[in-house]
Design a protein around this nucleic acid. Structure first.
Lengths: 229, 229
DNA sequence: ACAAAAGTGTTTTCCATACACCCATGT
DNA sequence: ACATGGGTGTATGGAAAACACTTTTGT
């Protein structure tokens, strides 16, 4: 094949930004302002520039959409979607990314992210392009990764309690877990979490204050915390 | 952003074709016949055509490189590699795929695949482009997926023994496993393998003939077969 | 005192490991 | 007979599930 003739493609990134808020797994959606799918909900994203990698484009778009100066969460590639007719305008290949973050401030009107909104993962509208598939793949990726990585800590703020972490698992998986056993699994994994001195936080109107933790250096969970069948 | 102006990219697929042969995990390499990296070993691959998906391109290239009419193994997307300088000629985004297959016939001279060769995964030369990274990522994907999926069956022929399956695990992971316990794990997972009537095969010059199995309908392993630490 | 939530203990069940043993076959 | 490799049994240690219990706080 000649190196001087190749089919030209547009390359975009799509972002599945997920967080836990109001006891629900939520994703960030935008309302499309241009054709095609004008007015329809979709995942945020944009074109990859000629001098940046897809990962850099994803990070750039992430800052633009959230309106933040820095992104403290987790960003990983999900997969590439390339069916020839996925965009009616032209031939587009899209690299999808999953971003996990603690509860972010709501999108502010007047910024680039004004059209952005959080939407519960269990109550999503139909999305533009093949974004329904991207979301389905991404949510399954998140649910699976909680089993064998320490990724749940990216959903809570810098300081958190064991209960906060358990809530992440329960909300993402849509189940309830035994408090005592969950606690033992987390504390039994070296480097998952580390206690912050003797600091505790009140736990509502009543109840014993809870020990505060930060994330530890571990990234994988051996053995994994498996979802019930 | 205007829909009429976007940076044009070339999109390619790279193939990590893996098999188990001679008690070693091996990958298919080609020798590059054009610049850049002329004469260097590399992963097979090629441009995505304008009217096909990346997955279709990967499947097409797979048949071309192996010289087979059909591909019976497993093909899955690994990830997309898009650093701006990964190809000195132009801006190329490459979607990498992992293909798992039982022991394929050696590439035949005189075909498109004449330049292809099998190379042990533990003794690979330096590769063109960022293919070293692709191989590293792909091998780790394969090793991890043997833990919680039934993917090992794609490395053996249609009919196989439990011992054949164990050899796949041992070769891919580079360890030895207890025969009795491995057997119980496999047979204890419903749908992993199904016995073929009362058919057995001799096991060399001596020894009891072994029961023959085919792959079953299961795709996930619950609980997983974890690698030793 | 009581309610609420953190934190600990205990029992039971199950699974993984290690290793011994039996079975069927060809030389 | 015996070596070889498939197939089975079993004792033991440890983890996981279920659930009772204790501790610490605010009202």
């Amino acid at each position: 094949m000649s190196t001087n003739e190749f089919p030209p493609f547009a390359v975009t990134v799509d972002l599945l930004v997920a967080t836990v808020r109001d006891n629900a797994l939520s994703v960030l959606l935008i309302t499309r302002g241009v054709e095609p799918f004008l007015g329809a909900p979709a995942l945020p994203g944009g074109f990859v520039h000629i001098n940046e990698s897809a990962e850099q484009a994803a990070h750039r778009e992430l800052l633009e959409e959230t309106g933040l100066a820095h992104f403290a969460g987790h960003l990983e590639q999900l997969g590439t979607y390339s069916t020839p007719d996925r965009d009616p305008r032209m031939r587009v290949v899209s690299v999808a990314y999953v971003a996990l973050a603690p509860h972010l401030p709501d999108p502010q009107a007047g910024t680039d992210a004004a059209q952005a909104m959080w939407c519960r993962a269990d109550d999503l509208p139909a999305l533009a392009f093949d974004h329904d598939q991207v979301v389905a793949d991404g949510l399954e990726r998140i649910r699976a990764k909680l089993e064998y990585t320490t990724l749940a800590v990216t959903f809570v703020s810098e300081q958190f309690t064991i209960r906060d972490l358990q809530t992440v698992y329960e909300v993402v998986w849509g189940i309830t877990l035994d408090r005592a056993n969950f606690r033992r699994k987390v504390l039994g994994t070296p480097g998952f979490v580390v206690a912050v001195d003797g600091i505790t936080v009140p736990t509502g109107p009543r109840g014993k204050p809870a020990q505060v933790y930060r994330r530890g250096p571990a990234t994988v969970l051996r053995p994994p915390i498996l979802r019930p069948i």
